[in-house]
Amino acid sequence: MTNRIHQAFQQPGKKLLNVYFTAGYPTLDSTVPVLQALTAAGADLIEIGMPFSDPLADGPVIQQSSTVALQNGMNLRVLFAQLRDIRQSVPKTPILLMGYLNPVMQFGVENFCREAAAVGVDGVILPDLPLDDYVAEYQEIFRRHNLRPVFLITPQTAPERIRRIDELTDSFLYLVSGPGTTGGANTQAAGVQEAYFRRIEAMNLRNPRLIGFGIGDQASFRHACQYAEGAIIGSALIRALDGAADAPAAAAHFVRSVLA
């Protein structure tokens, strides 16, 4: 069964910009206007962050936005209500939900998948969901609701594990650019990162690849695009939204600055 993620990758030669922002940030009701502005400005995929109190894989910027979003009153019930009509205004752009397992577990995995599919979500990224648990308990539910899981790969991920991850999804692979949490600078020696990207490229995996972590502007986006089908930006967008009087305008301006 096809979904919008596949269609996004069916554009030969096009490099895709995937942007992450936190639901309910900067204000509770900004989720939909920001999402609409991002797609109108040219973002190719959207990741909506589901805020969590203890986001282990995230750096200070996304963590802070999560704290604010929770204070604003964001939760999964509110998010699904906000997204109810999103496919009327954003028909084609893939939308993924990214977050941590515990809030999803408390909501109920089946409930979560049903609600996500109902509003038109295409994929789910849960960095702390172990592969074995996904296979044992979640895979069947995800399939039933036509949701694609997205898994992360890091420079330390062993080749056989990369192959397994590649088998377990048909969406894209999220290549973490280097050691560190989201929003950190690349501190690796020159050439180390590129060698890692090339090594993954040479594996001829069936899924396309998007590079994330530490991508924050046009230069880093273009650099990453040399080694993958596109790249993911999160923290830099959140920073652009921080304190913006007009959040949708700031979001659009940010996307245009990357793609210009």
């Binding site: 702390d128 890091t154 062993a158």
Partner: peptide, 20 residues
């Protein structure tokens, strides 16, 4: 073998921690 005591335990970690 997977670190479970009954229904409790396991290793719910992001991929970045998996090798360690």
């Amino acid at each position: 073998a997977r670190g479970y005591y009954g229904e409790f335990g396991g290793a719910f970690i992001p991929e970045m921690l998996y090798p360690n």
